[in-house]
């Protein structure tokens, strides 16, 4: 029709993306997450749902469960905190100085990733036992590491070490030295440069490393059961408690504990991620 032909083209074009394959890659991501994460985890909630309210609370409120939770979260947080500090130091040493054997040490950092954690647990308990190489030195001072809560902490530090180092290292490498030089020429001392310039820049990366180390420690099982005494109320971590319930065919009980573990971990990780987002935004990186 002549009338419609005379109409000017005012219809706006649909938004188009430059990168192709958004639908495909998002679909794949969701499918992947469902098959590997969400569906398997949902069975935990389904299983726990077979319990009544009072049954559920009885399991959660049990002093043994509460002790296990306190120990797991406490030791994991402490280990991640120590890793945040020493991981930063290791990353600093590896990026800031060049010395013979640097590459070897750099490679060693990844070992806790690759080593079966049961092997780590056995090695650590052998060394830290009262007759072991390190334990022998500590025992006269009434410090006992293996088969105590301190042992759990040591094992969790071991498995969490690479996370902080590997997240901080690339950021340290990218730091421009002229920023530090600028601070020095403005009269800042080395301490002030570190505290006011370097640390704020590194903080998001350290936080990421801390989160990863913390999350990894929460789920750690293999190394801890070898170095801990595994005594309920004193040396029992949540994964061990769940294993115990499973051994006794108390599937619903195990699921109830798993649900709380999941929710608590998720809440904590979400909180740390929000903190991360905020600190990145402050850095002008978001």
């Amino acid at each position: 029709m002549a009338v419609s032909l005379a109409q000017p083209q005012t219809r706006s074009l649909p938004p188009r993306r430059i990168l192709p394959g958004f639908g495909l890659s998002l679909g794949y991501t969701l499918l992947y997450l469902c098959l590997l994460v969400l569906i398997p985890l949902s069975t935990v909630f389904i299983r726990a749902g077979t319990l009544s309210h009072t049954q559920f609370w009885a399991i959660i409120d049990d002093p043994r469960t509460v002790a296990a939770f306190k120990l797991t979260f406490g030791a994991s947080a402490l280990a991640a905190l120590v890793n945040a500090f020493f991981g930063l130091l290791v990353a600093w040493t590896l990026t800031r100085y060049s010395f013979p054997g640097r590459r070897v040490i750099d490679g060693l950092v990844d070992l806790p990733f690759a080593l079966p954690t049961a092997v780590a647990g056995i090695c650590l308990s052998a060394v830290y036992a009262d007759n072991g190489w390190v334990g022998r030195v500590l025992a006269p001072h009434h410090i006992h590491v293996a088969y105590t809560q301190a042992g759990i902490f040591v094992a969790l530090v071991f498995i969490g070490l690479p996370f902080v180092v590997r997240t901080v290292q690339p950021v340290l490498q990218d730091l421009e030295t002229d920023v530090e030089e600028a601070a020095a020429s403005l009269g800042a001392t080395r301490g002030q440069i570190f505290a006011r310039i370097l640390l704020p820049t590194l903080f998001p990366a350290v936080l990421t490393g801390f989160t990863l180390a913390f999350a990894r420690a929460l789920g750690e099982y293999g190394s801890v059961i070898f170095i801990s005494n595994n005594i309920p109320l004193r040396g029992e971590i949540v994964p061990k408690l769940i294993m115990d319930k499973l051994d006794q065919f108390d599937y619903a009980g195990a699921a109830a504990i798993a649900v709380i573990m999941l929710l608590a971990s998720f809440a904590l990780l979400l909180l740390i991620n929000l903190l991360q987002w905020w600190s990145r935004k402050r850095l002008g990186m978001a």
Partner: peptide, 20 residues
């Protein structure tokens, strides 16, 4: 005397501002 105590103002090619 080190850079800190020389009382020198230095301007860098790539600004070297503290981005945080």
């Amino acid at each position: 005397r080190d850079a800190r105590s020389r009382q020198v103002g230095f301007v860098f090619q790539h600004y070297a501002l503290f981005r945080h």
